[in-house]
């Protein structure tokens, strides 16, 4: 085995183990005993909070100060939200939203608008 291969395999092992540690940690810490009361109250609010935070996270690479100023993302999220509140059809909201977004970014629709 060459040094390069060994280095790559070691890196993959280290990253895989570190990732697993972050996922297994709460199960190791709280599996045998009940989490404290305040924690279990917070734990109930975590899922909705994290879901909405993930929406913000998806916007991490948006350049807000450059054209098109994040407008494809903002517009598409607004359309998905309105559509979903009106129809409550998960797949419909997701597909129309994604199709719209691909159309907007592949044809630089908003960029034309700002230039």
């Amino acid at each position: 085995m060459t040094n390069e291969v060994l280095y790559l395999l070691t890196v993959i092992t280290v990253v895989a183990i570190a990732t697993f540690i972050t996922r297994v940690l709460p199960f190791v810490l709280f599996n045998s005993k009940e989490p404290p009361v305040s924690m279990s109250k917070i734990e109930k609010d975590l899922p909705p909070m994290i879901l909405l935070i993930l929406v913000f996270y998806c916007l991490k690479d948006v350049q807000w100060s450059q054209p098109p100023y994040g407008s494809p993302e903002v517009v598409t999220i607004a359309v998905v939200t309105i559509l979903h509140v009106l129809k409550r059809n998960t797949l419909l909201s997701i597909f129309i939203g994604t199709g719209l977004y691909m159309l907007l970014v592949q044809h630089d629709v908003f960029l034309l608008f700002f230039s």
């Binding site: 899922p47 909705p48 879901l51 909405l52 993930l54 929406v55 998806c58 916007l59 993302e73 598409t76 999220i77 998905v80 939200t81 979903h84 509140v85 998960t90 909201s93 997701i94 939203g97 994604t98 977004y101 691909m102 907007l104 970014v105 592949q106």
Partner: peptide
């Protein structure tokens, strides 16, 4: 392959799941 923008499907998924949580919370 022109898949540019297709990963937005995950953003849309998170938006929809958040709205569902909002109604159930």
């Amino acid at each position: 392959l022109d898949l540019k923008g297709m990963a937005f499907v995950l953003t849309a998924l998170f938006v929809v799941l958040t709205i569902e949580q909002y109604y159930h919370s």
